[in-house]
């Protein structure tokens, strides 16, 4: 609705070559540049930090990125199905709290003597239920996603505190030690989990009719409804899928930290950044699962490279901030929009 008005204004304000040049430059920088920048970053760290470009280190980065990656993929699914408008479109702020509660449920079940099967089911059920509550709030009650998931985030974070009394519940089991160990080629099992999960998610979202419908609903809900798509059901399932990603990341986090964590809420902003950055790695500037994997790795390699170079970790958050701004500035210049 506002999109065609914006196009109109593009014609009316198509006054100078400078703006067109800026758009071309931004487009070039985004399409080729993001991959080039990623490559340049890898080369820079390889030269400056001797251990950086070793199979072991890359495997470690992949393993450390698994939790962030799974969460970011969940958020990407919601953003695809809800549209890019962050306030009115799709967003799931409850993901980090979801990770915390699912991890707490898993750790509590294991530490009270339940088997891995029960604990896995418990964690996934927790994540799925949180997703279901989000879906009901958004689709049935009609609450704006930003607010609905904000409220759910508070409740979930509170429930986690109630369950763990704000302590770390440690957990050990056979399944957990398999997950936290090293697999073939001395690469952490978590790295394999991330790659396999990405392939499955990308397969569903990028290559099935269901995925196509998800994009259709996110891009233009009215058109999707007119075309006979069950818009509500698809949006609802995107939140349930995201909740399940939260549950899965909870399991991964228990294996990575040998227990539950009290600081899960800190993950929220990195997850949002990672999912939003994914658009840069796609040619049409839309969120994709593969793009999310790349942006997860970008954030992971940045953090890791800084650690190897002994640069203070306090800088990482600032650099993430600058990164978002650069990317989004380039994106909005490329799209030629004014104040959005």
């Amino acid at each position: 609705m506002s999109a065609d008005i914006d196009t109109l204004s593009d014609f009316s304000s198509g006054n100078d070559g400078a703006r067109r040049f800026a758009r071309w430059l931004a487009g070039f920088a985004l399409h080729g540049g993001s991959i080039l920048a990623f490559a340049a970053l890898l080369i820079f760290f390889s030269i400056t930090a001797p251990f950086f470009f070793t199979l072991g280190n890359i495997g470690n980065v992949l393993g450390q990125s698994a939790i962030l990656g799974v969460l970011a993929i969940g958020l990407t699914i919601v953003i695809i199905g809800g549209g890019a408008n962050v306030v009115k479109g799709g967003i799931d702020l409850s993901l980090a709290a979801n990770l915390g509660l699912s991890a707490a449920v898993y750790a509590t079940l294991v530490s009270t003597g339940h088997g891995d099967g029960v604990a896995i089911a418990g964690a996934l059920l927790t994540g799925g239920l949180i997703g279901l509550v989000n879906a009901i709030a958004i689709v049935i009650f009609g609450i704006v996603p930003l607010l609905a998931t904000l409220a759910v985030m508070n409740v979930v974070a509170g429930l986690e505190l109630v369950l763990t009394q704000n302590t770390v519940v440690s957990a050990a089991s056979d399944f957990l030690s398999v997950l936290s160990n090293y697999g073939p080629f001395d690469i952490p099992v978590l790295a394999y989990v991330l790659i396999i999960f990405t392939i499955i998610a990308a397969g569903i979202v990028q290559y099935t009719p269901l995925g196509l419908r998800l994009y259709a609903v996110g891009a233009f809900p009215e058109a999707a409804r007119a075309a006979g798509l069950p818009v509500k059901r698809i949006v609802a399932s995107s939140y349930i899928a995201s909740g399940l990603c939260g549950g899965l990341s909870g399991i991964l986090s228990v294996s990575y930290l040998s227990g539950s964590t009290t600081g899960a809420g800190e993950m929220l902003l990195p997850v949002v950044v990672t999912a939003l950055l994914s658009v840069v790695f796609s040619r049409r500037l839309v969120p994709t699962i593969g793009g999310t994997l790349l942006s997860t790795l970008l954030v992971g390699f940045l953090t890791n490279g800084f650690q190897l170079l002994n640069i203070s970790s306090t800088l990482v958050s600032g650099i993430q901030g600058i990164l978002i701004l650069l990317v989004v500035a380039a994106t909005s210049l490329q799209r030629g929009k004014g104040v959005a």
């Binding site: 962050v86 306030v87 902003l269 949002v272 950044v273 939003l276 958050s317 600032g318 993430q320 901030g321 600058i322 978002i324 701004l325 989004v328 500035a329 909005s332 210049l333 929009k337 004014g338 104040v339 959005a340």
Partner: peptide, 14 residues
């Protein structure tokens, strides 16, 4: 021309 959510998110990080 950055959307407010992302612009202020960036500011928050920095």
């Amino acid at each position: 021309g950055i959307t407010p959510f992302l612009a202020t998110l960036g500011t928050l990080f920095i």
